[in-house]
Design a protein around this nucleic acid. Sequence first.
RNA 1: GUGGGCGUAGCCUAGUGGUUAAGGCACCAGGUUGUGGCCCUGGAGAUCGAGGGUUCGAAUCCCUCCGCUCACCCCA
Length: 437
Amino acid sequence: MYRAPRGTTDILPDEQVYWSFIRQKAYEISVLYGYRRVDTPAFEDAGLFVRSIGEDTDIVEKETYTFDDRSGDKLTLRPEGTASICRAYIEHGMHTLPQPVRLYYDAAIFRYERPQAGRYRQHHQYGVEALGEGDPALDAEVIDMAWQFYANLGLKGLSPILNSIGCSVCRPTYLNSLMEYYTKHRNAVCSDCRRRLERNPLRLLDCKKPSCVPLTEQAPRSTDHLCPDCSDHFSRLSSYLRLLNLPFVTNHRLVRGLDYYTKTVFEIAPEREESAQATVGAGGRYDDLIEQLGGRPTPGIGFATGIERLILNMKKQKIIVPQSAEPFVFVAHISQQAKDEAMKLASLLRRSGISVIPSLGDRSLKAQLKQANSMGANKAVIIGEDEAKSGTVVLRDMAKGEQNIVPRDVVVETLRKTYHRFVLVENRITCAIMKVG
RNA sequence: GUGGGCGUAGCCUAGUGGUUAAGGCACCAGGUUGUGGCCCUGGAGAUCGAGGGUUCGAAUCCCUCCGCUCACCCCA
């Protein structure tokens, strides 16, 4: 038997209410903050991600889905969203647009990892990128936008965590003092940390092992080693966030797993983290990235949020999403002649913008109504031999359990009048047709 | 890649050495004429994750593999 590949999942109809709700809120807030949608390919030239995320990061080293296509091109399924957006910015000459260019995306992300609660090999991220402006006010905008987005979803108890990891000017000296410090304590740290010391010193700060935590507390802080530019940026960002009443906290141990970040990094996570993969969203500034990818020097800042984790948190907080159960009519029939009439009527109703589920097969009326009931039909149209002969139908209200006989040629009108929500469906369809026309 | 927990019908669960593996939900059909929700009756649906071993006898004990799950690493 075939199953969905490891770490992937089917999003079944009952789950879709969360997805459409979250996406609707994401699109709303994007418009509100002036961001426009970009869709990029699910795969890119493998080199793009090596260049942007960094050769020595876990993502590139062991988590990418990379393959050669039939022409021998080396491609990678995107393991994050930012690199593709930057590539598109360069490729389409967006530096000629008014800066910053505000973009958003909603895309599937692929990482080869061991699946776990809130972690998948294919997951989905909604993210925004603002390119071409280095003003900390823009950092504040992005963080504020993320914060408002979560508030609009009804999520509570989240906290933005902020840090600055400096830039190409000041980070090297900071890393030196960090490595100096840890080299001195080399024998006191765990084996993971000794490996981090070689590969990715910033991550040393992130170790949660009780034996290492005291050392991380006393370790040199990036914010104490910022150059005047970065230091100024960080303090101005902080004051903008206070201005906007964002209840952020700073944490000198917050680092990120991608090499391209400069200055601002942030995460938004539940305050009391029960399970491990609690972070719902994260982002930061990447002022050197576009230049690294071959564009002219262009600062940028972005943010991404994992939709699966949002749903996880929404369920945990028992947030009820609006159920938009579309009303529909069930069309039942008794006898072959009646079935012909039922098929014709179902088609007519659908063309008139009314949702219809026709009964299939030749089952007893009882069985048909039972199905209509369990499917949640609002109305049932019943056509039997008598109705087929006399050109009428039985129109039954499923909730009230009342019914009456209606001439067939007024069924559409009657349904419109007695059930105004159907008209909404019709309007929507009409609007779509007008746009196309 | 490392470690823990768990695999009995579509879903949830009982059964821990002894007849044809039990129940609930869901599904299908009936409960006299063409009417749903409640109730009653019946039906279908499981090579007990797979393979091997121990035993007169294995869902049950042992081994291997696979899958799911949680955690570490890392990340949304």
